[in-house]
Protein backbone atom coordinates (compact mmCIF):
# COMPACT_ATOMS: atom_id res chain seq x y z
CA UNK A 1 0.00 0.00 0.00
CA UNK A 2 1.30 3.44 -0.95
CA UNK A 3 2.39 5.73 1.82
CA UNK A 4 0.62 9.08 2.06
CA UNK A 5 2.32 12.45 2.07
CA UNK A 6 0.43 15.61 2.94
CA UNK A 7 1.96 18.57 1.14
CA UNK A 8 1.06 21.87 2.83
CA UNK A 9 2.29 24.44 0.33
CA UNK A 10 0.63 27.44 -1.30
CA UNK A 11 2.78 27.88 -4.42
CA UNK A 12 0.76 26.08 -7.15
CA UNK A 13 3.67 25.42 -9.51
CA UNK A 14 5.83 23.95 -6.75
CA UNK A 15 2.86 21.86 -5.65
CA UNK A 16 2.32 20.58 -9.18
CA UNK A 17 5.96 19.58 -9.67
CA UNK A 18 6.10 17.90 -6.27
CA UNK A 19 2.86 16.08 -6.82
CA UNK A 20 4.32 14.68 -10.06
CA UNK A 21 7.62 13.48 -8.62
CA UNK A 22 6.03 12.07 -5.46
CA UNK A 23 3.32 10.16 -7.33
CA UNK A 24 5.92 8.87 -9.76
CA UNK A 25 7.92 7.67 -6.74
CA UNK A 26 4.90 5.75 -5.50
CA UNK A 27 3.44 8.14 -2.94
CA UNK A 28 -0.17 8.95 -2.44
CA UNK A 29 -0.23 12.75 -2.40
CA UNK A 30 -2.68 15.10 -0.66
CA UNK A 31 -2.33 18.82 -1.05
CA UNK A 32 -3.41 21.65 1.19
CA UNK A 33 -2.63 25.35 0.64
CA UNK A 34 -4.09 27.24 3.62
CA UNK A 35 -2.32 27.60 6.94
CA UNK A 36 -5.45 28.23 8.99
CA UNK A 37 -7.02 24.84 8.16
CA UNK A 38 -3.83 22.80 7.84
CA UNK A 39 -4.39 20.94 11.12
CA UNK A 40 -7.84 19.86 9.95
CA UNK A 41 -6.19 18.46 6.82
CA UNK A 42 -3.69 16.53 8.97
CA UNK A 43 -6.57 15.04 11.01
CA UNK A 44 -8.53 14.18 7.90
CA UNK A 45 -5.73 12.74 5.73
CA UNK A 46 -3.76 11.02 8.52
CA UNK A 47 -0.59 11.09 6.43
CA UNK A 48 2.59 9.06 6.96
CA UNK A 49 4.62 12.24 6.56
CA UNK A 50 3.96 15.98 6.19
CA UNK A 51 5.86 18.37 3.93
CA UNK A 52 5.23 21.77 5.47
CA UNK A 53 6.06 25.17 4.02
CA UNK A 54 6.89 27.97 6.47
CA UNK A 55 5.26 30.93 4.76
CA UNK A 56 1.64 30.04 4.30
CA UNK A 57 -1.46 32.17 4.00
CA UNK A 58 -3.22 32.85 7.32
CA UNK A 59 -0.90 30.84 9.58
CA UNK A 60 2.82 30.27 9.84
CA UNK A 61 4.23 26.79 9.30
CA UNK A 62 6.04 27.12 12.65
CA UNK A 63 2.74 27.38 14.52
CA UNK A 64 1.28 24.48 12.58
CA UNK A 65 4.32 22.38 13.52
CA UNK A 66 3.96 23.39 17.17
CA UNK A 67 0.32 22.25 17.18
CA UNK A 68 1.14 18.99 15.39
CA UNK A 69 3.64 18.21 18.14
CA UNK A 70 1.19 19.27 20.87
CA UNK A 71 -1.53 16.83 19.76
CA UNK A 72 -1.26 13.31 21.07
CA UNK A 73 -2.24 11.66 17.76
CA UNK A 74 0.35 13.53 15.71
CA UNK A 75 3.14 13.96 18.25
CA UNK A 76 5.43 11.55 16.39
CA UNK A 77 4.32 12.36 12.85
CA UNK A 78 7.39 13.02 10.67
CA UNK A 79 7.40 16.62 9.41
CA UNK A 80 9.76 17.87 6.73
CA UNK A 81 9.82 21.65 6.69
CA UNK A 82 10.51 23.74 3.59
CA UNK A 83 11.49 27.35 3.72
CA UNK A 84 12.79 30.09 1.51
CA UNK A 85 14.37 31.54 4.64
CA UNK A 86 17.57 29.66 5.32
CA UNK A 87 18.56 31.72 8.30
CA UNK A 88 19.99 29.95 11.27
CA UNK A 89 17.36 31.39 13.60
CA UNK A 90 14.58 29.85 11.47
CA UNK A 91 16.26 26.48 11.56
CA UNK A 92 16.71 26.81 15.35
CA UNK A 93 13.05 27.76 15.76
CA UNK A 94 11.91 24.77 13.68
CA UNK A 95 14.15 22.47 15.71
CA UNK A 96 12.83 23.89 18.96
CA UNK A 97 9.30 22.97 17.80
CA UNK A 98 10.42 19.43 16.95
CA UNK A 99 10.86 19.41 13.17
CA UNK A 100 12.02 16.07 11.74
CA UNK A 101 13.99 17.64 8.90
CA UNK A 102 14.49 21.16 7.61
CA UNK A 103 15.18 21.96 3.93
CA UNK A 104 15.72 25.30 2.23
CA UNK A 105 14.37 26.22 -1.18
CA UNK A 106 15.40 25.59 -3.88
CA UNK A 107 15.94 21.87 -3.34
CA UNK A 108 16.50 19.00 -5.76
CA UNK A 109 13.80 16.46 -6.49
CA UNK A 110 16.14 13.61 -5.58
CA UNK A 111 16.98 15.22 -2.27
CA UNK A 112 13.39 15.58 -1.15
CA UNK A 113 12.53 12.01 -2.21
CA UNK A 114 15.51 10.69 -0.27
CA UNK A 115 14.56 12.61 2.87
CA UNK A 116 10.95 11.41 2.73
CA UNK A 117 12.13 7.81 2.39
CA UNK A 118 14.38 8.27 5.41
CA UNK A 119 11.62 9.82 7.49
CA UNK A 120 9.15 7.02 6.81
CA UNK A 121 11.50 4.06 7.29
CA UNK A 122 9.98 1.70 9.82
Amino acid sequence: MAKTVLLIEDEPNITEAMRFILQRDGWSVSIHADGATALDAVDRVRPDVVVLDVMLPNRSGFLILRDIRAARQTRDLPVLMLTAKGQEKDRALAESYGVSHFMTKPFSNQEILARLQELTQP
Binding site: E11, N13, I14, E16, A17, K105
Partner: peptide, 22 residues
Protein backbone atom coordinates in the same frame (compact mmCIF):
# COMPACT_ATOMS: atom_id res chain seq x y z
CA UNK B 1 10.78 39.96 -3.36
CA UNK B 2 13.36 37.44 -2.20
CA UNK B 3 10.65 35.03 -1.15
CA UNK B 4 9.06 35.38 -4.60
CA UNK B 5 12.39 34.70 -6.30
CA UNK B 6 13.17 31.64 -4.20
CA UNK B 7 9.69 30.23 -4.73
CA UNK B 8 9.91 30.72 -8.50
CA UNK B 9 13.43 29.29 -8.63
CA UNK B 10 12.31 26.27 -6.61
CA UNK B 11 9.48 25.64 -9.03
CA UNK B 12 11.72 26.13 -12.08
CA UNK B 13 14.38 23.82 -10.70
CA UNK B 14 11.96 21.06 -9.84
CA UNK B 15 10.00 21.36 -13.07
CA UNK B 16 13.06 21.57 -15.32
CA UNK B 17 14.49 18.54 -13.57
CA UNK B 18 11.30 16.59 -14.24
CA UNK B 19 11.29 17.53 -17.92
CA UNK B 20 14.95 16.67 -18.25
CA UNK B 21 14.84 13.35 -16.43
CA UNK B 22 11.49 12.01 -17.58
Amino acid sequence: NLHDILSAVTSVRSTASILNQT
